[in-house]
Design a protein around this nucleic acid. Structure first.
Lengths: 152, 152
DNA sequence: CCGTCATATGCGCCAAGGCGAATATATTTG
DNA sequence: CAAATATATTCGCCTTGGCGCATATGACGG
């Protein structure tokens, strides 16, 4: 994988029927940790080390859940040197997109989710306070339309 | 349970945080059979025997999935004599409701789902053609606002 | 009350999913 | 190339979920 290129594991979906897509989407969303991850990515591209710092979960746990999200096509990943950046991969279909947006709105309304978000903001602004974030790339706002899904 | 009364198993949700509600909602939606069931209930209250007839799955399978849906609060049940009627239980929260509506819209756009629906329509109009539907109550359009969730 | 019909539930089996711990991989730096 | 860093994957364990099958429950009719 070349640097700066987004990837998405759509190859894992041999049956492309809408019903299978929905099943997989909901399976991807049906976990508290993954919802928290998505919430943090709602409008930013975020580096893995921040997830580990903010969610206070073991790094392999974070990585595994990001893997699930990748495989269900919900997020895309980009490598930058040692760092991996994750961002939400907006579905192409209108109805699927609508559904994901509703989910993100709902997440944004939740107390714990707001807490996670503000912790992320603080971590970015005072990066030097976090021993595990030294030199970590700051989350970048997602440019609309960039990084849309590309199958590999 | 008295006849004609709707029930919903919200008791199964001790932690009422939004995140738990979302997790449970998505778990409920993350199965092909349950999506097909919800699609058939989109704007009608439907009796179990129709589900068995239309989905062509064993009755215990149907019943178990209806049980999951009941326990996640996605549907409500009403008894009428020997028959059980199921209908979608619209969430109270605006964002959750929005999400469910989008899901139903998405289902309605799917080919297989449309096939299920038209099979249901046909079964209702020619009930006598189906040996397992003799005398079964015909699905009734859902009256808006009736049968909203009530915890027990 | 007994049989029947509609539906629900229990049981055993297998596959999938989540977790902690250890280890592997990829990239940069010296 | 070796060491360090960031991230991913593997393994073993346990829990959950779905299924087929058998059986239980609940309501009605005779």
């Amino acid at each position: 994988m070349r640097q700066g290129e987004y990837i998405c594991y759509n190859w894992a979906v041999p049956d492309k029927s809408a019903i299978t897509e929905m099943e997989r989407l909901f399976q991807g969303l049906a976990d508290r940790t993954r919802l928290r991850l998505l919430n943090l990515m709602a409008d930013q591209e975020v580096c893995v080390c921040y997830f580990v710092e903010i969610l206070e979960l073991p790094q392999p746990t974070i990585s595994r859940h990001l893997g699930y999200l990748r495989r269900t096509g919900l997020v895309a990943a980009r490598r930058e040197g040692r760092w991996m950046h994750y961002r939400i991969s907006v579905p192409r279909g209108r109805l699927a997109r609508q559904l994901l947006m509703d989910t993100l709105r709902w997440l944004a309304a939740d107390k714990q989710m707001q807490r996670d978000r503000s912790r992320l903001t603080r971590a970015c602004c005072a990066q030097d306070k976090f021993v595990n974030l030294q030199g970590a790339p700051v989350p970048q706002p997602v440019r609309e339309g960039v990084g849309e899904r590309r199958s590999i």
